[in-house]
Simulated scan of single mutants.
Amino acid sequence: MRKSDHGMLSADEVSFEYNVFFCAEAAFLYYPYYAGFNIFTFFANWIRLVCFNFPFAFFSQLFFIQPFIRTCFKAVFRRKAESAQTVKA
């Protein structure tokens, strides 16, 4: 199967990339409030926070948030398509 054959695969890739960036950024901004700022342990504590946050963020996005948003958009656009068909008829 080619990558272009399945739209869900590319959506999962985008979700993964978003979570990698967001978890790193959120951990960077939250770190001084979490552990106090210490220049000697900054990188180690930052990596620790990223490792704690990433699995939850990725799997919740993949299994809960993404299907919920897809369902909402399908319902909204299905109603719009049905109303457009009734107006044309």
Rank of each mutant, 00 (worst) to 15 (best):
P67Q: 04
A84R: 06
E13D: 15
F40P: 06
A27L: 13
F59L: 05
C51F: 13
L9R: 03
I69L: 08
C51I: 11
A26S: 10
K80F: 11
A75R: 01
A89E: 13
G36F: 02
A24V: 12
Q85G: 05
F73L: 05
K3D: 00
F73C: 04
D5Q: 00
F64V: 13
R48G: 02
N53I: 02
N53H: 06
R78I: 02
V14D: 03
F63I: 03
V20R: 13
F28T: 02
K3E: 00
V14E: 01
S15L: 11
F73R: 10
F16I: 11
P55Q: 08
F68L: 10
V50Y: 02
C72G: 05
R70M: 11
R2Y: 00
A57I: 04
F52V: 02
H6M: 01
E82N: 11
M1W: 03
C23A: 03
A81E: 09
F21R: 12
T41A: 06
F42Y: 14
R78W: 04
F21P: 09
L62K: 08
R2C: 00
R79V: 03
F59K: 14
P55M: 04
E17Q: 13
F63C: 09
G7S: 07
Q61M: 06
F77Y: 08
C72A: 05
F22R: 05
Q61F: 03
A84E: 12
M1G: 02
R78C: 07
V87T: 09
F16A: 06
I47Y: 10
F54S: 07
R70C: 15
E82P: 05
F64W: 10
I69E: 06
A26G: 08
F58C: 01
T41K: 12
T71S: 10
F42C: 04
F16C: 04
T86G: 09
Y33F: 10
Q85W: 14
F64L: 14
